[in-house]
Each structure stands twice: as structure tokens, then as C-alpha cells.
Computed example of a mutant assay.
Amino acid sequence: MPKQEITTSQAPAAIGPYAQAVLAGGLLFSSGQIPVNPTDGTVPVSVDEQAKQALINLGAILEQAGIGFADVLKTTVFIRHMEDFAAINAVYATFFKEPYPARSCVEVSALPKGVLLEIEAIAAC
């Protein structure tokens, strides 16, 4: 099955040997999006602003693939502190509408650049 790399300057560039996203078999697989502003490299301080920026970055990748948040089937949210779950959920709910995608949320010990969360997605194309 051939795969196509999806790349946009509207989301942070990959910082290693991976793609921002890959399209294959009618599905888009995004790499984890951290809350780095692609324009100036800054990271917001608060967890809610970080959640918003990570989802904006994910949205840019979806848009580059010609799809949107309504096409997302599954997300995985990696968070540094489980006590941030409610704040992240509040922001997440402003990007996703019913029927919501399936989701896993996992607390991790560390994330790149010291951010508080990372979000990856699988979407239908």
C-alpha cells in the first residue's frame, strides 16, 4: 500500500526522522502534535493554551490533507499531569463535536521540549 507524506508549514516541522502525518489506505496518521507555535517557536505557559495550540497544529495538518476535525476517528492524548485532564477536556471539546472520536489519554513522565501535552490522531480521508 503506497503512502503519502503530509507536510505543512502551519504546524511545527518534524524534529527527527518522521513525518508530520502519513496518508495511506484512506486513513491519515498524524504524529504527535506538541504546543509549539510554528511561526515563532514559542510554547504557551498554561495547559489550556497548550492544548489549544496543539489542536491548532493538528488542525493545520488535517487541513493540508483536505479533511477536518469531523473526520478524526481516534486520538491519543499524552499528558504530564492527570490533574490537567479537565482543563484539557474543556479545550478539546471546542475542537471536536459529536459524534466524538475514540480517545485514549495517558499520563507520561516527560514530553519533548518540556511541554504539558501531545496529541496524535487517526482520521478518515
Rank of each mutant, 00 (worst) to 15 (best):
M1R: 06
P2T: 13
K3L: 03
E5V: 08
E5N: 14
I6E: 08
I6Q: 03
T7L: 12
T7E: 14
S9R: 08
A13H: 11
A13D: 09
A14L: 13
A14V: 05
Y18N: 12
Y18E: 13
Y18F: 15
A19C: 11
A19G: 06
A19H: 11
Q20C: 03
V22S: 13
L23N: 10
L23C: 11
L23H: 15
A24G: 15
A24D: 11
A24W: 08
G25K: 12
G25Q: 09
L28Y: 14
S30V: 13
Q33G: 10
I34H: 06
P35H: 12
V36R: 07
V36W: 02
V36L: 09
V36A: 11
N37A: 04
P38Y: 13
T39H: 05
G41Y: 13
P44H: 02
S46K: 10
D48E: 09
D48V: 02
D48R: 09
D48C: 04
E49G: 03
Q50M: 01
A51V: 06
A51W: 03
K52V: 06
A54C: 01
L55D: 01
I56L: 10
N57A: 00
G59I: 03
A60V: 00
A60E: 00
A60D: 00
I61G: 02
L62F: 05
E63G: 00
E63M: 00
E63T: 02
A65K: 08
G66C: 06
G68E: 04
A70T: 13
A70V: 04
D71A: 09
V72W: 01
K74Y: 12
T76S: 08
V77T: 11
F78N: 07
I79M: 09
R80H: 07
R80T: 13
H81A: 02
H81W: 00
H81F: 04
M82D: 03
F85D: 10
A86L: 06
A86S: 04
A87G: 00
A87T: 05
I88P: 01
I88D: 00
A90W: 05
A90I: 05
V91I: 11
V91G: 02
A93L: 08
T94K: 02
F95M: 05
K97W: 02
E98I: 05
Y100Q: 10
P101R: 06
V106N: 03
V106G: 00
E107K: 09
E107T: 10
E107A: 08
E107Y: 11
E107F: 09
E107W: 04
V108Q: 14
S109W: 07
S109A: 04
K113S: 15
G114K: 11
V115K: 10
L116D: 13
L116E: 14
L117I: 14
E118V: 13
E118H: 14
E118C: 15
E118M: 15
E118N: 15
E118I: 12
I119G: 10
I119L: 06
I119Y: 05
I119W: 08
A121P: 15
I122G: 07
C125T: 14
C125Q: 12
